[in-house]
Structures are given as structure tokens and as C-alpha cells.
Amino acid sequence: MASRWVLVAVSAAQLAAGAAGQVIALSEGRAFDIDVLGFRGSPARLGRDSWLLGTGLSAPVLMLSVQAVATIRLAAGSSRGATRVLGSLGALMTCGYLIEKEARGALSPAGWNPTTTPAVAAGLTLAVTMAVLGPRQASSSS
């Protein structure tokens, strides 16, 4: 039971970091740039792209919405489905942060920024934690 609340708290904090990343990216015009795949967004389409593709600093609004619903569901009571969703989203977001050029840049010494770096560092750390806690919690509630 206690681990359920830890996952709820971690997911809520990660959701806040993701929302902060959205706000920063939208205000600074940071479109997604997945250079390893040659997939780049445009600052002109940033608002629209943020809904389904994300920004350079956060997951898509749709993914954050699913995370919010799963977090609320898990807070309301034990739910293997919500736990699995949160673990899966944590894994997906971890990959997203690692392949996103803007996020990697924010974590490098040369790209340090007092606004961007803390949001990305928190978001990534919390996403990794969700990816680890989700499967553990799902298997313990079997």
C-alpha cells in the first residue's frame, strides 16, 4: 500500500515537471527535435504539435493527460491497470527525454539554463523512477 502512494507522488511530481516543460517550451519556442531519427518540429507549429508530438522539453499533452487520469485512479484505490500505465509512461518518457536534442542539451554543462535544466532533470529522474516503480508495484499487487 505504501508503495502505491510513492508511485502516486512520483507521478504527480513528474506530471508537474512535464507541465513546466510544456510551458517553458511554448514560451521559448522549443519545438521537438529528435535528431537521432531526423524528426524535427517547427516553432510555427509548436502549439499544435505539443498536443500529439510533444515539445523539446516535455511529452505530448495527450500523454500527460493519460498520466493525470492514471495518477488520479491510483490515488483513488489500488489499480493494476493504472500502475501498469504509469510504469509504461515512465519508460516511454525516459526514452523521450534521452532522444530529444533539447532535453539532452539542457542536461549538458554547455546547455545549463536556470529554468530549463531543473525542469528536464526533474522530469527525467521522475520518469525513470516511474518506470522502475510501476512494474514493481504491479507485481506486488497481483
Rank of each mutant, 00 (worst) to 15 (best):
M63V: 15
M63G: 06
M63T: 15
L64T: 02
L64K: 07
L64F: 04
L64N: 08
L64M: 11
L64V: 07
L64E: 06
S65A: 14
V66T: 06
Q67A: 13
A68R: 05
A68E: 01
A68G: 02
V69S: 10
V69H: 11
V69N: 02
V69R: 05
V69I: 12
A70G: 13
T71S: 12
T71Q: 03
I72K: 07
I72N: 04
R73D: 10
R73K: 07
R73P: 01
L74Y: 14
A75P: 08
A76I: 07
A76M: 10
A76C: 07
A76W: 08
G77N: 09
S78Y: 10
S79L: 10
S79R: 10
R80M: 04
G81P: 06
A82C: 05
A82W: 11
T83A: 12
T83S: 13
T83E: 05
T83D: 09
T83H: 09
R84D: 01
R84S: 02
V85N: 08
V85Q: 00
V85H: 05
V85I: 15
L86H: 11
L86K: 03
L86Y: 13
L86A: 08
S88H: 03
S88R: 06
S88I: 15
L89Q: 07
G90D: 06
G90N: 04
A91S: 09
A91Q: 04
A91G: 14
A91F: 11
L92D: 04
M93Y: 15
M93E: 08
T94D: 07
G96M: 13
G96F: 03
G96V: 02
Y97S: 03
L98C: 07
L98N: 06
L98G: 06
I99P: 02
I99S: 01
I99T: 11
I99D: 00
E100G: 04
K101V: 01
K101E: 15
K101R: 14
A103I: 12
R104F: 00
R104W: 02
R104N: 09
G105S: 02
G105V: 00
A106P: 14
A106N: 07
L107N: 03
L107T: 12
S108G: 08
S108T: 13
S108N: 03
S108E: 05
P109G: 01
P109Q: 01
P109W: 00
P109M: 00
P109I: 01
A110V: 15
G111H: 13
G111V: 04
W112V: 09
N113A: 03
N113I: 00
N113Q: 13
N113Y: 00
N113K: 02
N113C: 00
P114F: 00
T115N: 00
T115C: 03
T115L: 12
